[in-house]
Amino acid sequence: MKPSVRGFELKDIGICYSRKQIFKNLSVTISSDRNWAILGRSGSGKSTLLRILAGLEAPSQGTVLLNGKPVSKDARILVPPSKRQIAMVFQDLALWPNLTARENVMLGMRGDNSEKIALKTLETCGIAGLASKYPSQMSGGEQQRLALARALAARPDYLFLDEPFNGLDLEIKDSIIKSIKKLADDHNISTILVSHDPFEVLSLCTHAVVLEDGNIMEHGKIKTIMKEPKSGVMNMFKNYVDRLRITL
């Protein structure tokens, strides 16, 4: 019997919206011991794939396995997102504007020491001093850290990042990516990043899944893929890195 993989396995996944097929028979393994990037052009279904992994959407067909156990199958979610040990930072951060930073982190927590954990997580993310501020009273970078703190407070095994760095300047982006990397290493968290920015991907991820025309075009170690890229996206990544090398 084949040993089960620690991480996600997608088997013959298909999804369609309003009769438009986004994926068809998509199969891939995303192991938990790596930091992954999901790459592809706009509209290629990167965020949809992330939501399927998270359990926010059910695939129209096929099975999603987590650590060898089916969590979604044939349009049904078998294990809800909150039971998958996943946390997510959304593209628009999804911070609740009527709650303070502390309340944003605490809302989903239970137990007597939830406040203590929330404050500790805010401290870890470098915004302990902003616990009683509302999101609208924070800068873009601080909001980003709050979204990260909310995600990490759940002590997840996986951290999903859905293009969360859009609109940030390079300095803040670099500092937050470093923080994520350190926190992920310290707490043994696997990250899965959706992005089309080579800087973000190469700074945070070691492995990639490349989507093109509803199929997995490439899959594996980024360094290996970039030696002989098959997809348009990875070709552009390679050109970007080459140009950067020449310029420097």
Partner: peptide, 12 residues
């Protein structure tokens, strides 16, 4: 936005 409900769902 839909992401508010998604975030709530992720946190149980």
């Amino acid at each position: 936005p839909s992401s508010w409900a998604w975030a709530a769902e992720m946190q149980g």
